[in-house]
Design a binder for these strands. Structure first.
Lengths: 325, 325
DNA sequence: ATAGGGTATGAAATGCATTTCAGGTCAAGA
DNA sequence: TCTTGACCTGAAATGCATTTCATACCCTAT
């Protein structure tokens, strides 16, 4: 494979001139420019990006850390990130971690090793304290509340979101409310559980463990939840479900078994995914796409401006009223 | 940021020795090894991957070209690719092209510019002839039939798959059969249309344009198809749907409007996605995950073995009988 | 006439880690 | 005693493009 030196030789100019042609710099005579272009063509030359990355000290690549790709929540978030990366002519490297801290560390080390210019964390298992040191190596942004940690963040207030959903249900007379969440110990889940506990206390209801479902990610999980509900003597009259997919699964399986939605069971989903509209699901829009695109924009900005102060950005959610409550 | 030279100085050794420690080479005295390790620690040093990529001539990154990330088909395929990449300690760069030839070219050029060691094409708009020259720069593999082109390929026989679905329906007495596909002019769609036309000719049925739906990708599109069906005077009694998502959308909307599945309308999906099992959808398993992991394995093999002859690999599909036929 | 600015070009330094080659020491085997 | 091989170390070459600095020409304005 030809390199710039060979092009220079072939065109009878210096490597500097070749570089100038390659980068559209001024002050190259038309004659030499043509000679260079012809040499490039003849030798089928392309620049070696690794050399460019090395000397420029940047790669125009941003890393994206996420547990699973094939998951509606992350896919939507990723879509937002990718859309903005495209506009800025950036590439994305995906780090699918499966919540494995070692894999997450790999992503962080890529930043340190200058493989990527910045890192967007969609979700993680590591502690903030373990992540913080890497902000020296480049912008790091998490798509969740980073609290007091010196890490940029774009997030929505999950406590408030859950609270709004709960109040919406209570206003309509529901007192027996359950929920479905993903990971038990994630920040988001904790905020939501707190909202739940507080809201139930507010109406003097006791918290019932059996109405709190975890590990709910997909339609299939929703089906399982519905089947569990069917075996219960006393069922909740409403469910707050932290994913539209899960909500749809519950809805389908419940209706199949004679439970009417919303008469027997009211359901609120989260994320306002396309599927929610199709099934006319009442949901709380978390603006995932917007979150992804903003995430990239912030990181990109920090890369170009070389600003290092962590930036925190809160997005607003909104309740979309449809037919399942 | 420290570099290897500074580490050498700090530890009182040569850069060669530092490199040897970094790469776990033999023949470094315990004493010097320790000195180097300490220096690395003190200066918080990490290697610059761009320098390594440059000198090694490879990056341990494979590119993945796909039109959309947030799409069940590609997400599942990507999952397979990613699972295998993880095992080989490779990273993935995503090129979301939206079927834009310019974006596709960018991905190919990344191969030429040595940013990636190989490229997996999940779907594309470019002609094979435009892609072929890039096989010189590194392994390129397409997840579809590449025909006579000198491009590696892993694919399933869509003609045969569609045919099997059609015959399965015919055996059960269906003569009025429609289909739903994605892009009108993709190779896959063409093969499927051919199978369709041939099968109808076989039973002396005419081809009806109004029963051939295109641009069907998601649940929402399925809902639209169902609504179109509802307006028809004469409807097909069976539908072959090239995506489980779309099939589920059709099913839901049809049932909601009093069309019984399978009595009034039989449906066969494709891909055997998790959603198909949930809705007990009869489907043809295209082994997408397996296709993705094999795709990576082949590319990885070509990278390490430096083999350049294109390799073609055909996967078997299988019909999963459930309750929608 | 001369200083200054625009145009044009190339040599050499730079970014950084790996690898080859060469030069050692020391102990075991002939 | 001499050879051989294992062990240890470092100088220098290498991969490749960008950028700085230096040089030089030509024209215009003073």
């Amino acid at each position: 494979m030809a390199n710039i030196r060979q092009i220079a030789k072939e065109a009878g100019v210096s490597v500097t001139t070749v570089s100038r042609v390659l980068n559209n710099h001024a002050y190259v005579s038309e004659e030499k420019r043509k000679a260079v272009l012809e040499a490039i063509n003849r030798l089928n030359y392309s620049r070696n990006l690794n050399a460019i990355h090395l000397i420029k000290g940047k790669t125009n690549i941003v890393g994206v850390m996420l547990p699973y790709i094939n998951h509606a929540y992350f896919a939507r978030l990723l879509e937002g990130i990718a859309s903005e990366a495209l506009r800025s002519n950036y590439q994305l490297i995906l780090f699918q971690t499966d919540y494995n801290p070692e894999e997450e560390m790999k992503a962080l080390n890529m930043l340190k090793m200058k493989q990527i210019d910045g890192l967007i964390i969609c979700s993680k298992a590591l502690e903030w304290g373990q992540i913080e040191p890497f902000t020296e190596d480049g912008p790091v942004l998490a798509c969740e509340d980073t609290g007091d940690a010196a890490i940029s963040s774009i997030y929505i207030d999950h406590y408030a979101g859950f609270q709004q959903g709960l109040f919406y249900l209570m206003e309509r007379g529901h007192r027996h409310i359950g929920y479905c969440l993903g990971r038990v110990n994630s920040n988001n889940s904790q905020a939501r559980r707190n909202a739940y506990v507080d809201a139930l206390a507010f109406i003097d209801e006791v918290v019932r463990e059996e109405w709190m479902f975890y590990q709910c990610y997909s339609i299939e999980d929703g089906v399982k939840v519905a089947n569990k509900l069917l075996t219960m003597k006393e069922r909740p009259t409403a469910l707050l479900v932290a994913s539209d997919q899960v909500a749809v699964g519950i809805m389908m399986e419940a209706e199949k078994n004679g439970i009417r939605i919303p008469e027997d069971l009211a359901i609120i989903g989260f994320d306002n995914q396309p599927i929610a509209e199709v099934f006319d699901l009442t949901t709380i829009d978390n603006q995932l796409f917007e979150m992804g695109s903003s995430a990239f924009r912030i990181v990109h900005n920090q890369i170009t401006k070389k600003k290092r102060e962590p930036q925190k950005c809160k997005l607003e959610f909104r309740l979309i009223e449809r037919s399942t409550v």
